[in-house]
Structures are given as C-alpha cells and as structure tokens.
Design a protein around this nucleic acid. Structure first.
Lengths: 223, 223
DNA sequence: CGTTTATCTAGAACAAGTTTCACTAACGCA
DNA sequence: TGCGTTAGTGAAACTTGTTCTAGATAAACG
C-alpha cells in the first residue's frame, strides 16, 4: 500500500550527494547492486540521447527503453525529465572535476587560473554541444522541486572554481561572492552561446572579464 | 492557399522591435487596429495568468480563452509559449525602462548607479514573483528559434544599464563587456532567487559585487 | 457591390511528459 | 524456506503544448 517512492516526495530526488566537501560519490541511499546498475544505465542512456539532439532528444519513453527499464521505474529513479538531466549533469561534472584535478591550471595568478580552468571546461562542452544544451537548459529551467539537486551541481561548480584558485587559506566572504558571480556568468554565458546569441570568442571575453573580480577581492592586496 | 503566417517562418516571431536605440515601440509589421487590440489582449492575459502561478499557469488554451481568441490565432501571433512569454517580458521591460527614466538613480558613481537601478528593478519583480518566474524561465529556456526576441530583451536590458551608468561618452568595449557580465549575473541571480536557492540579501550582494567591474573598467582611471 | 484572399474560429488530432493501475519479481527477514 | 513488503513491468490514461482542417469573417481590390 505504501507507495513510498525512492524519492521522498514526488518531484524530489533522493540521490543526494549530501555534504559535499569535494569529491564524494553519489552515495545514493543504499541501493542494491542491481539498482545501482539500473541508475547507471539510465544516466548513460540520458547522456547518449542528449549528445545526439540536446534537450528535446531526451524523451522519457526512449530513455526508459534504451536503458531497459519500465517508464514507471524511470520515474521512480528520477521524478522528472529535469531531475534526470540535472543528475546527468552532476555525473558529468564529477568526471570533469576529477579530470581537472589531474591537470591543474598552469597560470600563476588566481584570476588567470580560474579563467584557464573555465575555458578548458568550455572546450570540453564544445565537443558535445548537444549534451551541454540539454544539461544547461535543464539546470536553468529547474523549478523549486529540483532545488536540492541543482544546489549540488552548484556546490560542485564552486568546488571546481575554488580548486582552480589554489588558495592557501579558506576563501573570504568577498571571494565567495566573487565566485558566485563567476558561476552566474558561466551559466548565463553558456546559454547565450548555446542559443547562438554569442560567439565562442565573446564567451571567452566575458569569462576573462568576470575573473578580474578575483584580483579585486584578493585577501592580500600587497601580494 | 498561401498560409503565410503572421510570422515569416514557424517559430519565428514577426513583431520585431527592429533597431532599438532606446525607447521604440513594438512597431509591429503594420497590424490593423483589431489585430493590435488582439495582440494586446493576448499579452495582457499572458501577464495576468503568469502573475497568478508563474510559468506553468500560463496555459495556451487559457490564454486563448481569456483573450477571446482562438487557439490557432494565438499561435499565429506567438508561435510558441516561450515566444509569448518573451514578448510579455519585452512589454514589461519597456514599462520598466520608462519608469526608470523618470526617476534616474541618485548615486554618484556609475557602479553604484547601476546597482541602485538593478535593485529597484529587483524590488519591482519581488512584487510579482510569479510573473518574474514565468518571464525569466522562458527567457533562459528559449532555444535558437527565439533568438531574435531574446536578443531584443537583451538589448533593452543593456540600454537600461547603460542609461543608469550615465556616461558622458560612448561606452568602451571593456565597459560593454562588463555590462554583459552584469546582465549574466542579473539573470542567473534572479533564477537562483526564484528557485529559492538564494535569498534576497544574497542577490543584492551579488549585484553589488558584479557592479564593481564597472569601476574597474572606468575609461578615466584618474577620475 | 461582388469576388478573391488572408484571418479567424471551433474543434479534432497529435506528441511527449507524467500518472495510474493491476500484476509480477525481488528483497528482507524470521 | 516462506511470507510480507518494496520495487519493477507493461500498458493505458491524462495533461498540456502544438498542429491541422473545414468552414465562417473580414479585408482588399477591381
């Protein structure tokens, strides 16, 4: 009788990443092996369809079919298309973060390091523009019901940027604000690029421009 | 036989604002009076429904009904829900621009002036959070087919910010880039606020932070 | 005016996200 | 191992954006 879905409430995904201090795996509320595999198949199918034709190409029936799962099951794992795509983004970001860790930016100044890192990420997205489209559109279209998941993505992004800054000490409040603004610019610039309203060069300029905020908020002005 | 819609191609709205150097009215490709009235009724219904329940509450059938127009006609005027909402936003922005013009910011420094103006706009949006939700979500969800319309909104926003800066001369390329970044931050910060992931205070801080870029790019450093 | 053509209307039809239901399979546990 | 519970399946139903069609109106034009 209890139809306690995997997720507590309708439209509220369970696969919380929880705290998130840095790497942390999905950790999904103890799933059996088969369930973990299902979840993985679903995310894989989602990413594959997305890289074909972007947001519209990710059709729930097809995701279900391609991952060998019933439609109802898909919805039990991801209570909406947006949830699914945001989770897909979490997944991709995790990869990206690990990759970036292995080859940290070469620049000296924090601002330049962040800009370099974001441009690297941007080039990665350029290789899969459709996938980028699906993920970013889902992210910005997400409503309150997806807040926890979107927040996780945001924390991951913040972690990537803070990593790139290569700080010795904990960031100041001012720096955190600058990082938030950089994230805003990053998302919004991506959107203008994806919808063909800004060129790659323009995105580059905007990223470099916003990164100057980091110099502005350096904790040790007499560096 | 010719089914030349009001809009040239499917999903490409005709009601171009054209050049847009500042105020310019919709100018809509010569519409008869009745048509202009219809268009206005539609936009009105759209805004009304939006301010009730946001993006989801704007249902095309209801918009059609509430504005006394057939569904097919609605689609002839606005080839998609997103087109409709973006047009609604154009409309609202126009009002906003005029209002702001009448009471220009009181601050001295350009950065402070822009921040003040944006906070004013933000307070206006807070009075109609659902409407804000509908418009902003539509704006960021818009795909390439809506580019021209979204671009118009962007130009309007840019005009508002440049106005607020109160420059004596034409803006430099650097300043324009800063303005773009401010716009990015503005949109993205709004989204985080609308989806409950950031407080009003946080949005304020982010806006103030990003506005510091204006000082940074002042054309006359020895002011 | 009368005719030709472009708009509008009403309503059915279609597409894809989401929900529901009746049933079966897998799991957890005593 | 057997049983009660939770998860998964398949298929239909429902919702809302979008498209299509046939006929009624209004505009344009001679």
């Amino acid at each position: 009788m209890h139809d306690v879905r995997l997720s507590p409430t309708r439209r509220r995904n369970t696969f919380e990443v929880g705290q998130m201090t840095a790497e942390v795996k999905p950790a999904a509320l103890q799933l059996t092996e088969r369930q973990e595999a299902r979840r993985r198949r679903i995310l894989h199918a989602s990413a594959r369809l997305a890289s074909r034709g972007g947001f519209d190409a990710v059709q729930m029936r097809e995701v279900a079919e391609n991952s060998g799962v019933a439609l109802g099951t898909l919805y039990r794992y991801f209570p909406s298309k947006v949830h699914l795509l945001v989770a897909t983004m979490q997944d991709q970001l995790q990869h990206m973060h690990e990759t970036l860790r292995k080859r940290p930016p070469t620049e000296e100044e924090p601002a330049a390091r962040v800009a370099q890192t974001l441009m690297r990420a941007f080039r990665a997205l350029q290789r899969e523009p459709h996938l980028a489209d699906a993920m970013v559109r889902a992210l910005t279209f997400a409503d309150r019901s997806v807040s926890p998941e979107v927040d996780t993505v945001s924390r991951l992004t913040t972690a990537i940027i803070l990593d790139a800054m290569g700080l010795d000490e904990a960031p100041t409040a001012e720096q955190l604000s600058a990082v938030r603004v950089i994230e805003h610019t990053w998302h919004s610039a991506l959107i203008t690029w994806l919808s063909g309203r800004a060129s790659i060069a323009q995105v580059k300029i905007d990223i470099e421009t916003v990164c100057r905020l980091i110099d502005l908020t350096a904790p040790t002005p007499a560096r």
